[in-house]
Design a protein around this nucleic acid. Structure first.
Length: 139
DNA sequence: GCCAACGTTGGC
DNA sequence: GCCAACGTTGGC
């Protein structure tokens, strides 16, 4: 199983909205970046990811699961763009902020820090385990 | 709200 | 195929 991180501005699509979708989940539409798309193409059913609030919030607020693998993005006719569906699994007991990540030498190499503009990014097993631990959340 | 970093576009 | 110009993202 692989681990990922999904970024969203809460003004556009928030964790609460994701939770409201429940088991059905929701298409992660709107990605128009090849690297992010390729990451979604690489996802398998059941892969887990962090849900991160960008711009306003700047913290990991929850855990999601891939519930549908990559398919054409219904928000565009352009066949280049694909997306997966994700569903909310559980909130972080303690959200993990960008500031906390930057302070931890074990986390400063995260893509989140190194390439803050990539909206769908991979997370390593070590990063996943540590953030779950710091967030006091069972993955 | 600012602006640096990055990705994309398009003229040559 | 290069690279300047432009648009967007997202931390601050």
């Amino acid at each position: 199983m692989a681990f990922w991180l999904f970024k969203s501005e809460p003004d556009a699509w928030s964790w609460d909205q994701q939770v409201a979708k429940g088991e059905a989940g929701e298409e992660w539409t709107g990605v128009r970046n090849y690297q992010a798309r390729n990451n979604m193409r690489a996802m398998a059913l059941g892969d887990r990811g962090f849900f991160y609030h960008s711009r306003t919030g700047l913290e990991i607020v929850g855990i999601v699961e891939v519930c549908k693998t990559a398919h054409p993005d219904s928000s565009t006719d352009d066949p280049r763009w694909e997306c997966v569906d994700i569903k909310a699994v559980k909130p972080m007991a303690k959200p993990i902020s960008m500031a906390m990540i930057k302070q931890d030498p074990r986390l400063v190499d995260m893509v989140l820090v190194k390439n803050s503009r990539l909206s769908v990014q991979p997370v390593t097993q070590e990063e996943w385990d540590l953030i779950c631990k710091l967030g006091e959340t069972q993955p």
